[in-house]
Design a protein around this nucleic acid. Structure first.
Length: 384
DNA sequence: TCTGGGGTCCTAGGACCC
DNA sequence: TCTGGGGTCCTAGGACCC
């Protein structure tokens, strides 16, 4: 344990998806652009350029509403696979430049620079300014960076200087920096929690700082302990460099509501093939299958069942069908989803499988290869 | 012209076991 | 005489994040 404060940087790519599309089509630069779904269908905004945000366009807003706010808006369909690859490459580059890197999301990274002052000539802020330039010149991606003593503080700070900003919160100034900010800037305080706090007259972090920990936990429950610490500039300092996925899911909102069980079962089958393919790609097996249904009125229900571990489409599909029949009331359906969790890894359990299982395993692998090569519709797996 | 998709984590109740 | 108490697993729903 050391008393020396940590030096944690948060690097956040500015409107990442839009920036990638601008690399491919420079004519999009300087214009209001969003990456998102179709405005004719049920598309929403995934990423909005700052020119678009000036019109009030925001992430998660329906594409149709965005277009109403900004009629000149250019809508681009996303290329998520590419975004992931670019994010991977940037992460690798950051790992060459900083000793400890956490990839917090596709467009956010933490760098632990504690003890690195010597490496960067005692000028971490200067190093980060250079890093910002490097990300722009090597990747053509604008980003914002904040340096602070905890992860959460760095993340809050970076939002105050976007886009293309650089922010330093020196040790000892944390509470003062946070005080004037609205509580909604704290990650984890979403619309519901914010509304509950505002209803009690707590609007800024300063208001929160004046409460005792008991007050905060009384207001919002167990989460309050964490929130109390964050308001006082404390919080997690450890970067997470290894991440294991805990669930695999696929869901689809249909452009038109589905009205019959056979239609739903057909879609369910496609979703199951998709998640099972991902599952086998990781050489995992699932033990819990969940089906999600959202009706026309947006009411959403889930049903889950724990089964014998499997990675076999028909086994998962049978379980999913039963869950669907349990959930389905006959009303128009706008969304259907399949969610797998509770994984086991193949290696640990391989001794349990018979020759027959092994043959089926190889057959399924072959199916995955064919699908990857020729598309999802080239082949479907029949029942065992 | 309402409201995507892929995740994580938490809560709360019931079943079940000792 | 009604009625323990803790632990764990499972399920449903919901808040939140990018």
């Amino acid at each position: 344990m050391t008393d020396r404060p940590k030096q944690i940087a948060h690097l956040d790519l500015d409107c990442f998806y839009v920036s990638v599309e601008r690399i491919k089509d420079p004519s999009l630069c300087g214009k209001p652009v969003v990456v998102g779904g179709s405005p004719q269908g049920r598309g929403v905004v995934a990423s909005a350029s700052y020119e678009a945000r000036a019109f009030g366009v925001r992430s998660a807003m329906s594409a149709a509403q965005a277009l109403r706010l900004c009629p000149r808006l250019i809508l681009v369909r996303g290329h998520h696979h590419e975004y992931g690859e670019i994010s991977d490459r940037l992460c690798e580059r950051l790992q060459e430049l900083a000793p400890v890197v956490e990839r917090a999301s596709i467009d956010e990274f933490y760098l632990d620079l504690t003890g690195c002052e010597g490496l960067y000539k005692k000028d971490l802020v200067g190093f980060l300014r250079n890093l910002q330039q490097l990300v722009l010149s090597e990747f053509q991606l604008p980003c914002s960076i904040a340096l602070a003593t905890t992860k959460t503080l760095a993340k809050i700070a970076v939002a105050t200087v976007k886009p293309s900003g650089l922010c330093h919160v020196p040790p000892g100034t944390e509470e003062e920096f946070l005080a004037p900010l609205p509580i909604g800037v704290i990650p984890g305080v979403g619309t519901k929690t914010e509304a509950r706090l505002v209803a009690r007259g707590i609007r800024t972090i300063r208001d929160m700082q004046r409460l005792s920990m008991d007050d905060v936990t009384t207001l919002i429950g167990a989460h309050g302990v964490w929130l109390y610490d964050v308001a006082h500039g404390r919080g997690s300092e450890e970067l997470i460099t290894q991440w294991t996925r805990k669930s695999i899911s696929r869901e689809e909102t249909f452009s038109h509501d589905l009205l019959t069980l056979p239609e739903l079962e057909h879609e369910l089958h496609l979703l199951v093939e998709d998640v099972c393919g991902t599952l086998r790609g990781k050489e995992w097996r699932t033990q819990t299958v969940q089906v999600k249904i959202r009706y026309h009125d947006f009411s959403t229900h889930t049903a889950a069942r724990t089964i014998e571990e499997t990675n076999d489409d028909p086994v998962v599909f049978r379980a999913a069908c039963e869950l669907l029949r349990h959930l389905y009331t006959g009303r128009p359906v706008r969304l259907l989803g399949v969610h797998l969790s509770n994984f086991t890894t193949g290696e640990q359990l391989s001794f349990r499988f018979s020759d027959r299982d092994e043959h089926r395993e190889r057959m399924l692998k072959a199916v995955d290869v064919l699908r990857a090569k020729f598309g999802e519709d080239v082949i479907h797996v029949g029942h065992a």
